[in-house]
Design a binder for these strands. Structure first.
Lengths: 362, 362
DNA sequence: CTGTTAGCGCGTTCAG
DNA sequence: CTGAACGCGCTAACAG
């Protein structure tokens, strides 16, 4: 029963098919596919016609097996839904397209175990390299960097990192942001930072040392330089998520002496904060100024339009891909350090920041 | 010169290496990798240890070549940066992970020529199937559906489509949205729709028939049912982008008799519209109510929080992947129609909608 | 210039 | 249960 099922299941044309139709050898077909110049125009034409007639697409899998390279790279991000990463992905895509690389996208979902699994799958697929914003640098560095496998970190790197990476100058970015607030006349400035939201910390010896520490440090530096105290009720740890920003916002607003400005280190938390401000009917920037990290379409349409520090997210993707391809095509010499590219962020002043209210001045 | 470059360039362990180390045959190693039950526990253990010691990852490329399937699918979206697609991608990722498929992401950038190229690359990579929100159904349908290549459309489909697809019930969604506005007492209701922004239209016989037509139709139906006139100044065509929404918003607000409510068919245009409203200092929802399409983190944090129609974007991704895998693993019988899954959207009432101002009532 | 052929790493058969 | 042999589609080296 069911004898003739799957007989010739829509087999895709192979080089041999093309060769047969064009009445040449597979070697010749291969030559025209890889456009070696050693094929006469007439023959080439015949081959190309045959390819078109058969709708032949070279089997990249077979080619990969032979050439030992797949023209595919893996990209693992902690959260595809975060607009920052979305924008980086876009940059990677663009650059990849131009350089002939496809990208396999993996969402690690901020889960370190998942990340390990994803990496393993990428290895199996024999990607030529990996782009990663890792939740666990230690493991990733150990498994990849030491093995001389082409890998470029972006957004986050481990402490004392020696490989290739593309990063934002977070310290300078947040320093400038807070300085701007200070110049506006603010003195009671709160910071809404992320907490350690990675389980990675439980078992890894290295702290994430991602953007978080640098952003806090920039705040600290600016405050200290102005000889302003950093009072602990103004130092809030969120969860990098909307809910945390909302909660911290309510707490800040409920303080006996609330801050006149808040520097929010993360886009999602900024949203939560604005939600709290709107709900409590506090005037922004009249009563409280808000300066957030990351700039997207929606921040300018907010009410009020948000002043932000804009990372060059798309550019970060492009550069990361560029460096990766460079490494793939000419591996780094023995014992050489990788290159770390640092991107500047830009302060975009809109209307959520202004001078502090009267009673807020010294 | 340079005699010994690339000598053994960090060769990855192969099955033969594992077999040698475990002192078994490759056949046995293969058996444990594919966990055939025909391997004794003791032997299996030895093989697994060897794999771990060598950090062996099965070569998925070789396996793909042999098995004629890559466990990889291609996903092409018109715009990776659009939060709607981001969310769909997330769903696809999740479902793919569970079912053992990796996804190669392609951003067609709303460019039809680019889409064609991406599809060709995906074919070359021998993806097992494709998920697509196409800018050009005609070409895509022709090239894929007719060839019995597993493909699932999402978000947008061609008119009279007969294959597999996962869609939102856009007509019902917008009908309900507009009805809600009508029940609130509005009568002068404007619609902010997208225009034909795809060059596809120039050469294809089929209109995109994406969400656009259905959303307009829902509006028309609700208005007609209430016997309200659809006045042409209230029927705005944007460009699906922020700038277009802003521009249309200004025009709407500048009308001698401005609408008391606006139904915006696209998330980016909603943002532009809100920008215009904020800038003109028009009270929302006091003077004008706004109801937008698509629901994301930021809409609830807006001032005022936006009332929206929420598509099940993540679910759309999951379902699309589910159907695709189903097709891959058991191809549709000759002549059978594909299945079209329709997802309901949900109205999320927040504070950007309210009754019309006094002078707006009949 | 063009044809022929040996693997790339793996899964599968088949005879032990 | 094992070991050897073949072929998936392609590239590159060599032979003509």
């Amino acid at each position: 029963m069911a004898m003739m099922t799957k007989k010739t299941p829509a087999r895709r044309p192979t080089m041999a098919d093309v060769a047969r139709l064009a009445d040449v050898s597979v070697g010749t077909v291969s030559a025209v596919v890889n456009d070696s110049t050693t094929v006469r125009a007439r023959l080439r034409k015949r081959v190309e016609d045959a390819m078109a007639a058969l709708d032949y697409h070279p089997n990249e899998i077979a080619r990969s097996l032979k050439l030992q390279q797949t023209h595919t790279i893996g990209m693992v991000v902690p959260d595809v839904a975060n607009p920052f990463f979305t924008s980086v992905i876009r940059g990677v895509e663009m650059e990849g397209r131009e350089r002939g690389y496809s990208v396999i996208l993996c969402d690690a979902n901020n889960d370190i175990e998942e990340e390990r699994r994803q990496l393993s799958i990428l290895f199996s697929h024999r990607v030529d390299g990996v782009l990663i914003s890792s939740a666990n640098f230690h493991a990733a560095e150990d498994r990849l960097t030491r093995r001389r496998f082409p890998i470029v970190f972006f957004d986050r790197t481990p402490l004392g990192f020696r490989g290739d990476a593309v990063l934002t100058d977070n310290l300078m970015a947040s320093y400038r942001a807070v300085r701007y607030l200070i110049e506006l006349g603010h003195r009671r400035i709160a910071i809404l930072s992320g907490g350690f939201n990675y389980s990675a910390l439980a078992d890894g010896p290295l702290p994430p040392a991602g953007p978080r520490a640098a952003r806090i440090e920039g705040y600290r530096k600016a405050m200290q330089e102005a000889s302003f105290p950093i009072s602990s009720p103004y130092f809030k740890q969120g969860d990098y998520k909307l809910a945390g920003g909302y909660q911290c916002g309510l707490e800040l607003l409920g303080l006996p002496e609330p801050p006149t400005a808040v520097f929010s280190c993360n886009n999602l938390m900024t949203l939560g904060l604005m939600g709290a401000i709107t709900e409590r009917q506090v005037a922004c920037p009249g009563q409280i100024s808000v300066l957030g990290f990351d700039d997207f379409d929606w921040v300018a349409s907010f009410n009020p339009p948000l002043t932000t520090v804009a990372q060059q997210s798309c550019e970060m993707g492009r550069k990361a891909m560029e460096v990766l391809v460079e490494r793939i095509e000419s591996p780094v010499p023995e014992g050489e350090r990788g290159q770390v590219i640092v991107l500047e962020a830009e302060l975009r002043v809109r209307r959520s920041t202004g001078p502090p209210p009267r009673e807020g001045r010294s």
